[in-house]
Amino acid sequence: MSRSKSKLIGIVLLAGLFAFLLYQFGLFVMVIWLKFHNPSTSAFMRNTLTQLQAEQANAQIIHTWVPYDKISTNLKRAVVAAEDSNFINHSGVEWEAIQRAWEYNMRMSESGSERVRGGSTITQQLAKNLFLSSDRSYWRKAQELLLTFMLEAVLSKQRILELYLNIAQWGKNVFGAQAAAEHYFKRHASQLNAAQSARLAAMLPNPAYYDKRGNTRYLQSRTRTLLQRMRMVEVP
């Protein structure tokens, strides 16, 4: 390889590295912005809206922001119990949980079951929902991890949970705790009781499905399980 060609490759690599670092810096600035401002939308909301409008041109997302202290503690406990029971204590990623989820999903797949369990923490889910696509590439997962560490470094656990509860999907076009409380129970998010909160938390792995199918036998069973677990978790 000639010296000029090697030099050109070096320049291209440096330019690529600079672009990558600049992109990460931009994301970090956005994370800092989230410390002081509430997002009106998310990457996942925008992607969902695009899909819905491809089917129905006038489709809309249902979403209303509600402050942390206006969300029922029952819902906070239920979501942490369902999605990330060690939320208070970890630094963003739980590698053992990822391994357990992978083993569980393999067993379910081998038995013909469609049930899946996620190993992502609430912070990881927030990173994905706010900034990334739903594709499962290794690059997307690596970027999710980088964003997770940024979120944990800049935001408090309370702020992370507040953001998550306000952008989580709870139906085909329903996003956030307030929209979910109104959609399913015709009440404010602050008024959700333990059973209602447990049911909403049980829906999180597949909210559009349960929005369409209603209170299935599995959803009822999962709700009962979460009602027992809620008392054992700590929330910010």
Rank of each mutant, 00 (worst) to 15 (best):
I62K: 15
N173L: 09
T48K: 13
M232F: 12
T64R: 08
Q178G: 00
A201C: 10
V235S: 01
R46W: 01
I32M: 07
T121D: 07
V154E: 08
L147K: 00
M203W: 05
N105A: 08
V29N: 05
G119Q: 09
F25G: 00
Q51K: 14
N38Q: 13
N105E: 10
F131P: 05
A180K: 06
L151H: 01
M230D: 06
A54H: 12
G118K: 04
D135M: 03
N86Q: 15
S91C: 01
L17E: 04
A180W: 08
N105K: 09
K128P: 08
Q178P: 00
G119N: 10
L151S: 02
L227T: 06
L200G: 09
A127S: 07
T216D: 07
K157Q: 05
F149E: 02
E110N: 08
L27C: 09
G214S: 08
A78F: 11
M1D: 13
Q196A: 06
S91K: 13
A181P: 07
N206C: 03
S4V: 09
L226G: 08
G214K: 09
V79H: 06
I9V: 10
F185L: 08
R159S: 02
V93D: 01
G119S: 07
L145R: 01
T148F: 03
I122C: 07
S109I: 06
N173Y: 03
T123Q: 00
M150S: 06
T225L: 12
E96H: 13
A142Q: 06
R140Y: 05
G214Y: 13
M106V: 15
A179Q: 11
T73Y: 00
Q169A: 02
